[in-house]
Design a protein around this nucleic acid. Sequence first.
DNA 1: CTTGCCTCTGACGTCAACGTCAGGTTCTAG
DNA 2: CTAGAACCTGACGTTGACGTCAGAGGCAAG
Lengths: 135, 135
Amino acid sequence: MAVAALEEEMRIGELAARTGVSVRALRYYEEQSLLGAERGPGGQRHYPEGAVGRVRLIQQLYAAGLSSRTIVELLPCVVDGQATPALLKRLAAERERVDQRIAELAQARDRLDSVITAATGSMLTGASCRRAADT
Amino acid sequence: MAVAALEEEMRIGELAARTGVSVRALRYYEEQSLLGAERGPGGQRHYPEGAVGRVRLIQQLYAAGLSSRTIVELLPCVVDGQATPALLKRLAAERERVDQRIAELAQARDRLDSVITAATGSMLTGASCRRAADT
DNA sequence: CTTGCCTCTGACGTCAACGTCAGGTTCTAG
DNA sequence: CTAGAACCTGACGTTGACGTCAGAGGCAAG
């Protein structure tokens, strides 16, 4: 087994282990041009240390609900700071989308809360309470 | 054309129009047992006024990231207030999930913000700024 | 009665982000 | 040198919430 902690490069399995995403996902990222990789003489992928952060970033953007197509458009901007006004608009738009989504979720959560409260109450009283809140 | 505003019932097209979801989606909801419908003599679906709120509720739960299978399990509880302890646990768990998702999104949004800030700065200075923040 | 819109039931298509399997190659420990 | 782990490239499968199309029937207006 090779020493990994001090190495500069790693193969796909280690990157997967260190990021928590599957090997398949990493290859998919490459296919989508989200993540580059150098190839050894045997055709195997080699990643630098920085790939770990890159993958985490990708994951975060996915978590933000961005599609891979969107991410691939915005990544150069994010990584290199090379932002055109158009890209900045896009970024701001995505940010807005995320904010709206958060608001949506918060509303849904509140709805769940009221449902839980109502249901808990009905259980305690043994009553069959009808609708509690609308919209 | 029939007067609709004062009618008690409506057909699928009107329900779709009033809720903003597609006719196909409404039929899908019925298929998933999320939304009942009475049938006229010609086999057409007729919905009461309350269906509007019901559909909105379903939409909110979808927006909360719940699957239709989950929703169909929880809907009796939500609508009728008939909650078993098991259902309450399920509701609470879903609420937790939503909260976690919100936190995730907030983090992603902050990340986007920092990216935007950095990119804007680099544009203003004309510099090629490298990575600004990690994780 | 007919025209035209609305509705019906299947049933296949879609899209994203991978999972999974097959068949072959490369690397590494012993 | 050799076994076995890790890796490679296709390529098909999966899942959820619908979209879309085809062919047939229902409903109100003129």
